[in-house]
Design a binder for these strands. Structure first.
Lengths: 193, 193
DNA sequence: GTCATTTCTTAACTTAAGTGAACGAGTTGC
DNA sequence: GCAACTCGTTCACTTAAGTTAAGAAATGAC
């Protein structure tokens, strides 16, 4: 379990055994059951998450309807905007599957960053990469139709379509579940002839 | 002109006269005419932009149609994703209005950051804030209809609707110019009675 | 296993966005 | 001034998404 995290980190920085031990002593690993709610709307938190195994999602409740806006799977990190803005959360975070994650809080990160410049450098690189990736995702979303977005997802994250309920995928694609059903039917038709 | 930048920076860090002079010596200020293209598709660059006055936009050309995905106005910074990924740019950047901007390259930033830890801290805060803000913008986009998105823009960036051509706003809202015309007509109707 | 609940699909209908074309207002160039 | 262009709007028509409702399929609880 720990090795998954260290392997990931080794892509960005090299870690000594001592540094690894300090990370381990922080007791950040958690196993969470499917359906567990990690964060609720209105709640304040300083916690960030990193998914080692499984899948978590972010969703809003608008007019008593769930609107899923993000899925985080293996090797993906999530720092809720409310941690940065220091305001109550606008959305929920819950586990789509039984998952293994790390949970760290921002005070803890500040302390580690000051002790280990390496760690700080890694965070900076990760944040910049994430910003660029998210910018591109948003651009793709804006410039394509629901059907194109579904096909795009099928190509880039085919696993999501298998492991996540359709109604959650629908709002992730910016449409209603009924529309997603039709999109899928339309595509299946085309592939037949 | 310089003071606009220093005032902005002073919200995050305090600068000595010496530090200000070093920044000035880098010769990063540019005035650019409306229509100037700062970056072309396929081009490689290490440049980041910060708008002191005016407006620049990012757009893709897809099937020989412009798709505008972002506008950057006073006190907004833009580091193209291609600078982070070190690949050719997927989009264009051009000036919507005569503008005053700063142009800095990533080597320069690396050097300043290593000399002035303060600057590095500011960059980190800015990047994290931007990531959170962008995440929320994307979520709002996904969870709302074209009409709601237009109303949202009217509330949050009313200036944009005045200073930017409608056809550029349309793709920014994820729709065609004809649809934006209808949305506007619909809203005007509602306000009459 | 059965029952209850949740999730997915289908259908009929409504509403809005995409498409192709035309028109007028406003610019720009010469 | 006039022609050429750009831009925004409108229209008629097509296509697709939203809505409401019903039922089938899958899942979970016991």
């Amino acid at each position: 379990m720990e090795n998954i995290l260290f392997d990931f980190m080794s892509k960005y920085i090299s870690l000594t055994e001592e540094e690894k031990n300090i990370l381990l002593s922080l007791d950040i690993f958690r196993t969470v059951k499917k359906g567990t709610i990690l964060l609720k709307e209105g709640q304040k938190t300083k916690e960030s998450y990193f998914v080692l195994k499984g899948c978590i999602r972010t969703y809003y409740v608008i007019d008593s309807e769930e609107k899923t806006t993000g899925f985080y799977t293996e090797m993906e990190a999530l720092t809720p905007p409310c941690v940065v803005s220091k305001t109550p959360s606008e959305y929920y975070i819950s586990c789509v599957e039984d998952s293994i994650i790390t949970v760290s809080n921002s005070d803890m990160e500040t302390e580690i960053n000051s002790k280990f410049p390496k760690f700080d450098i890694m965070c900076k690189i990760l944040t910049e990469e994430l910003l660029a990736k998210q910018r591109i995702d948003f651009d793709e979303f804006k410039t394509s139709s629901p059907e194109q977005r579904y096909l795009n997802l099928l190509e880039k994250r085919p696993d999501l379509i298998q492991r996540v309920p359709q109604y959650q995928l629908a709002s992730y694609l910016g449409i209603k579940p009924e529309s997603l059903s039709r999109v899928r039917a339309r595509i299946a038709d085309k592939n037949k002839g």
